[in-house]
Write a protein that binds this DNA or RNA. Structure first.
Lengths: 202, 202
DNA sequence: CCTACCGATCGGTAGG
DNA sequence: CCTACCGATCGGTAGG
């Protein structure tokens, strides 16, 4: 029996479509995605696309998963080699600013945008966005806790406050760059983040 | 000649519709507004609504204007009586946190949401959102400058950096409250803002 | 994966 | 402000 290609290849094709949908959604929003437009862009019929994903909501969830994978690759993985605690936190924040200041997605940070778009719309997409955000906050909080325990940060540190500050600087940076085209914002964000964690620089 | 009501009354009606559209858009987004739905909600025909505003884009711009007026009333006006400089800045930030933590719009801070939604979509709506954001940044920056000149803040203060920090805390607070339902976030934002401007509290 | 089609709704216009 | 209507597109299904 010759290999029918099928399974693995179909999965790869699905992933390609999901990445494309994520890029598209970074500009027009997850709710702005339409089955017809995505189908046209990737060169299949609308019915074919529905066959792959089942429904628009499933396509949105797949696009979100693809965007989360990109974020992990761009921000988490470069920092995963650094020592847990302050060194890893600094590596994460540096990669995060690079990611936000760069052009990974044509429409800026996908997850930030999806958070703003779905924060008031109950449903599976909102739940998935909130979960991803909460998990990321947990990653940051963990590094702060380790830094405190190892004496790299003062014992009086309020780690929830620091995490809120860092995520605020990130989403604020996204807005400054995307909406206002502020080219100095990334450097400012770096300084603000460094101060927030008591490091000399990011 | 008996007063035909008309002009003033029509203007009031238009304003009512714009406020309603703004509330609706705070949940579903400015792009999610549709002429048919808004018309139904305010009890007129779709053609009647088009007669009032001309097009969907004009309705979006009117909704944005209405939201800006609400923001001014809720955040700027309560602080306008305070002395320019640090006192006024503290009053603004206190009112801002109250506004973001409260339920002025059913879907959270309208302008923050519109900024995220339109940051990558060229057009008049995007331009209007960016202009409103830039003007608000200028208001904040002005208070910082006055505070520095009067010696309330150190001469080494980087006022652009402080403004970026403050707007970041605001948009981050909006996300923490709306997406994560974090009830402690407003108090944390208050502490972070106070530290950023070197005040004992907000 | 495809063509062909469904009812609903989109933004907007014609005409009054 | 209204009714009636336009062509386009929406999410999705039938049947293959």
């Amino acid at each position: 029996m010759s290999p029918r290609s099928t399974a693995a290849e179909a999965g790869r094709r699905r992933e390609e479509i999901a990445v494309h949908a994520a890029e598209s959604a970074s500009v027009i929003g997850l709710e702005g995605l339409t089955l017809g437009r995505v189908a046209d862009q990737v060169g299949i019929s609308k019915a074919g696309l529905v066959g792959q994903f089942g429904s628009k909501e499933e396509l949105q969830l797949a696009a979100l998963d693809a965007a989360i994978a990109v974020f992990r690759r761009e921000v988490w993985e470069p920092a995963a080699g650094a020592e847990p605690g302050l060194p890893r936190l600094r590596a994460i924040l540096g990669a995060w600013v690079d990611y936000l200041a760069g052009d990974v997605f044509p429409g800026g940070c996908f997850i930030t945008a999806a958070g703003a778009e779905f924060d008031d719309r109950p449903g599976r997409v909102r739940d998935a966005v909130a979960k991803a955000g909460a998990q990321w906050n947990a990653v940051l909080g963990e590094q702060v806790l380790i830094a405190v325990k190892s004496g790299e940060m003062p014992a009086s540190t309020d780690h929830d406050e620091i995490v809120q500050a860092l995520t605020s600087f990130a989403v604020g940076l996204n807005q400054a760059v995307r909406l206002h085209g502020d080219h100095d914002a990334p450097e400012r964000a770096r300084r603000l983040m460094a101060k927030a964690i008591g490091a000399p620089s990011i």
